[in-house]
Structures are given as structure tokens and as C-alpha cells.
Design a protein around this nucleic acid. Structure first.
Lengths: 341, 341
DNA sequence: CTGAAAGCGCTTACAG
DNA sequence: CTGAAAGCGCTTACAG
């Protein structure tokens, strides 16, 4: 007959090991307080019984849930998936479980999501972009839970950031095109409502063009957040501003749609039109032509955001901010304009 | 002075409403047992105090965590992200929180992930593909927790499936190419270790070719699971089997890499080489040429898997299986071969 | 329809 | 280094 170890709670382990429940608890949570031999015996019994501490009981008594909350725009952007992967695995190493909520791109209405994360017991929270929901700022002021935001680096925000300067990134892209000789620009952007990344990129784009006296500061087009939106935006741009020779896309996702629309219209990239992306998605170097884009340190941000929150959890101090660099990655989709105007 | 509502537990609500804690609990969880007027009063007080039930206490006492576990190969495949999005939002409607773990594509070693989900209190679990980990099957036999697997439809599995027949899907793709007149095939596949989807697709591909007397049953190449792997696989295929005119990719992700490698080599799609994908990713119709692929009902599977688990949770019966259809979606990347051999 | 009482499975002062 | 006791915040028989 197969001797299957019987499962039981901490009390069962205590009894079998001939110690008190308190000692079993300590053997796991405060091992340095327990005699080595006793501890070894407890661990052996626990393993034999396949003892699993009940997270609910542990959380109730210790007031620590070991849960981390994340509110993301979407999991459908692989750049966020990568970031979260790193973030989550770092926390997993420390015994934390991550719960993820998707909220869309508008940060003016993330209150319910944040509240839900907190209601579920999140001990720390990761957000994306500047918080623009007054109700969330109220929560922030009242709670001890450390928050970090990523993917942007808002000045003077209530939420510490582990991100990068979106304006600087777009500036590098726009100046690259300017340096190539482009004078007629357009931008394919996402919605700016409750989205500081988009606003920062648009503002930087406009600033560069105005400083250079180039055309296109007002040619900022948005048709949504997916690939098809990029195609529709390209269509609108070429219909309204056929003199455009350079397009700044606020994500590589838009660039994919834009490429397809160019093909449909017989527009050659980069001969007729230079296109630049954002994020350096996996497919960026594989497009035809390979996409010039801005490489964003997604893995590093995920890891670093986790470290910042972990440290805050230990020290009870606010999380440490960190501003990372992006890299303008030149590939084949940008070139000097053929016809100077 | 701003009158801020003071937070408190259930006991505080009970006192303020002049009822017992039990009645407050019932007002939320068993409303039909509480007098309407009393209940209204309790709800008003609770709202004023911003009462939030403690999930740990609730879980400990009721033995219900309201957590659902998911173990996925990766979040980086947008098809899984979509599936999980739907799955999660359906459960959220019912007050459940979803916790997601990524495990890679090899199902022979998911035991630790599944155990972790269970240890965290998952009341139901979603998996991808056939379970090939004996230790997981042991867990399955011992636990009452309902499991569902998705994305494949294994026969006689211990885990009920809400998925589709991968062999049938690949058969449709291969027969399409055969009907166009192709005789020399290759397949770009993922690793088959612990991955029934890959094995089913490869088997179907081979069966079709053998039945038709076409070449390529042994030309199944794998270089990993990302886009670059698709490119390397294409290179290997064309280096070793230059007569190949048709390639079946086991994900659109491989097709992106294959397209890029074709361009590099001056191979024209579909004139020189027909390529067919799997999954119908967002970019499939936007590639050049648009990718013929197999559309998979990701949203529907996510929703349906959630429903199956929800029903199982209520009825205590095993989850209901469901086999869905895929759709061979013809676009521009497949055509008759130029040179019959 | 409501309340008093017990208890879910742990952790943590407190005492030794 | 260890144990006895209390208690985290709820829910749930049980009794009325």
C-alpha cells in the first residue's frame, strides 16, 4: 500500500515534530531564532507532510499579503509584457505574487483599478505614466503603500518614477530627421487624454520643428492605439499633407500600420517617406525596411521598478526614483528626403 | 475642517449601524436574508466609512480566496495576452482576481508553477496545452480545484479542454498549399518537448504530405520561439532544401522572421516561396504580402474557459469541454508554385 | 430576520 | 531558544 503523506496544517507539523506551533512558525519565518537541530526536524516533518502555510491565515495575522499590484494600459503591447515579466519574476524571487490589471491608456480614470489592487491587499503598486486621477492622489496621500510609476518621468509627481524622458527621446528622433534635411513632418500619436507620454512626445516634436522652422507641428494625428490606427493615420496625413517627407510614430505598432498603408499607396520608405518608431519592438529590425526607432529599456525598468519597491517595502522610505536612457536606433526607414522643398 | 470618513472594519460598521457584525456580513454576502431597511442602513454606513472587507480574513474564514490561477507559456505572444485579457475580465465581473505565471513552452515541468498557484489559494486553474507533467497529474487527482486547458484539445486528457484541434488546423493549411500545386514543403516549428500543439501540427503536416506523396515530411526545423528563430529556420531550410516552395509556420511570429530572411536572400513571397502562418496576429494582414494564416478564436477561448471554470466552481462538477473552430484565412502569401517540379 | 459565540490557521508579543 | 495565549477580521452554524 502506497504510504501517502497526510496533509495537515501547522499544528499537525508541530505535533509530529514534538514542538509548539510557535516554533514551527519561527522555523520558517525567523529561522535564526530556532535551534538548528530542532529546525531541521521541523523542516523534515513539514516536507513529509507537504505542509503549505495558508496565505490567508498568514496575511490576516501578520498583516502582510505578499501581493504586489500592477495597473497597466494593456498586455497587448509586448513592451509592457516584457516589462511586467521582469518585474514579476523579481518579486517572485522574494516570495511575492503579482496581480495585474489592465486599464487602458487614459490615466484619468484608474481610481477603481488602484482601489481594487489595494482592496486585494497589494503591498506595493506599479503604474504606467503620470497619475492624473485626483482620486488616486487622495489614496496616495492616505496610504502607506509604496507606489512607483514607469515608462515616463514626470517632474514633481506624487508618484516616484522609474522611467525615462519621453520628450528627450522624441527630440532625438525628430532632430535626426531634421539633420537629414527633412522640412515637412507629421506625427502619428496616441490619445493625449490622461497620457503624459503622448503629450511629452508631441510637445518635444513641436518644439523641435518650431525651433528649426520646419512644417508639421500641427500635423499630429491619432486614430487609436493599434496597428490599423497607424494605417488610418498615415492615410489621413498623406491625404491632407502630401508634402510630408518624415513621420514620427509614437509606437512601432503605428509604424507597422503606416508601412502597410504606404505599400498600398505606392509610397516608398524611406525614398519617399522616412518613418521612425518608438519602443524597438521585436519586429522593428525585421520590417522592410528595418525600422529606425527608439529603444526603450523595458527589462531594466521592470527590474529596477521592482527593486525600488522592494527597498521601499523594507525601509519604509519612499521608493527611489530613476531616470533611464533611451537609444535612438538607426535602421533603414529613415533617409534624406529626395526632393528638398 | 474637512470631515473625513474614518475607516474601520466590519465591527465599526456594525456599531455605527446598530446591528451585529453577523448582520453586516450578511448584508453583503447574503442580502436576501436581511431586512431591506436594515440592509440599506448598513450599506450607507459602510459607504460612508469606506468599509473594505479584508480579503485575508474572508478567505481564512470562508475558505474561499476568490483567486484564479493561470499558467501561460509567455505573455509575449499577443495571442495569449488576448486570451488572458478576456479570461481575466470575465472573472473580474464575478469578483475574482486572476494571478498569472509564465512557464515557457515546455509542459513537462509546470509542476512548481501549478503548485504555487494552488499554494496561493487558486480556486480554479487555467493551463495552455496538454499537461505532460506526471507530478501535475498527481496534484490533479488529489485536488478538488477545477482545471481547464486551452489552445489544444487533447483526447482523453485528465484536464478538460476549451481549445481547438491543432492537427486539423495545420491540415487545412497544408492541404491548401497542396491544392495550389506545391510538392516541396518545409515547416518552421517550435520545440516539441512538452508541447502537444507543436506535435499535433507537425504530425498533421507529415500526414498530409505523405498522403499526397509530396516532399518535406522530414523538413521540420526549429530554432526557438521568437521572430529571429523564424529567420534562422528559413535560412536553414533554403540552405539545405533549396527546392522548397512552400513553408508552413507554426506561428505568425516565425513568419515575420522568415519574411525578413526571404528579403535578405532575394526570395520573393509568394512568387518563389509560399508562406503560411498560425494564429492570425494583428500584423498578419499588414505584412508584405499579407500573410495567409490560421485564425484562432483567442477571445472566445478566454471567455469560454472562464465560463467553464465558473460553472464548475458553482456546480462542483468537472468543467465542460469545448472544441472550437479555426479559420484558414487566405491572403497574399500563398500562391501556386512558379516552377512545377 | 437577527445575534452571540466559535473559530478559520496562522504570528507575535510576552514570559521564561 | 521555546511555549502558552491572544487575536488578526471576518463568516457561519446555531439558537431564537
Amino acid at each position: 500500500m502506497q504510504e501517502r503523506p497526510k496533509r495537515g496544517g501547522l499544528a499537525a507539523v508541530a505535533k509530529a515534530a514534538g514542538v509548539s506551533p510557535a516554533t514551527v512558525s519561527r522555523a520558517f519565518n525567523l529561522p535564526e531564532l530556532v535551534n538548528d537541530a530542532v529546525r531541521a526536524r521541523i523542516l523534515a516533518v513539514a516536507a513529509e507532510q507537504q505542509y503549505r502555510p495558508d496565505p490567508a491565515a498568514r496575511a490576516l495575522r501578520s498583516r502582510r499579503t505578499h501581493m504586489i499590484g500592477v495597473a497597466l494600459p494593456t498586455l497587448d503591447y509586448s513592451i509592457f509584457a516584457r516589462l511586467i515579466n521582469r518585474f514579476q519574476s523579481r518579486f517572485a524571487e522574494e516570495g511575492y505574487t503579482t496581480i495585474i490589471l489592465t486599464t487602458g491608456f487614459d490615466n484619468r480614470n484608474i481610481h477603481d483599478s488602484v482601489q481594487l489592487l489595494l482592496d486585494r491587499g497589494a503591498e506595493a503598486v506599479l503604474l504606467v505614466g503620470a497619475v492624473e486621477d485626483a482620486k488616486v492622489n487622495e489614496i496616495l496621500a492616505e496610504t502607506q503603500v509604496p507606489f512607483v510609476t514607469t515608462y515616463s518621468f514626470p517632474k514633481g509627481s506624487a508618484v516616484p518614477a522609474v522611467g525615462f524622458d519621453n520628450g528627450e527621446a522624441t527630440q532625438a528622433a525628430t532632430e535626426h530627421l531634421l539633420a537629414l534635411g527633412h522640412r515637412h513632418f507629421a506625427m502619428i500619436a496616441g490619445l493625449t487624454d490622461g497620457n503624459d507620454r503622448q503629450r511629452d512626445r508631441i510637445a518635444a516634436y513641436r518644439r523641435c520643428l518650431e525651433r528649426a522652422g520646419a512644417t508639421g507641428a500641427d500635423r499630429v494625428v491619432c486614430h487609436g492605439f493599434d496597428m490599423a490606427a497607424g494605417g488610418r493615420a498615415l492615410a489621413e496625413i498623406m491625404d491632407h499633407y502630401p508634402d510630408t517627407t518624415a513621420i514620427v510614430c509614437n509606437t512601432d505598432i503605428f509604424a507597422v500600420g503606416a508601412y502597410a498603408e504606404c505599400r498600398k499607396r505606392g509610397i516608398r520608405v524611406p525614398d519617399d517617406l522616412s518613418i521612425i518608431g518608438f519602443d524597438d519592438a521585436e519586429y522593428a529590425p525585421l520590417l522592410d525596411p528595418p525600422l529606425t526607432t527608439i529603444a526603450v529599456p523595458a527589462d531594466e525598468m521592470g527590474l529596477c521598478a521592482a527593486e525600488a519597491l522592494l527597498a521601499a517595502l523594507k525601509s519604509k522610505a519612499p521608493p527611489q526614483e530613476r531616470c533611464m536612457d533611451t537609444t535612438l536606433t538607426l535602421r533603414g526607414s529613415t533617409a534624406a528626403p529626395r526632393h528638398k522643398s
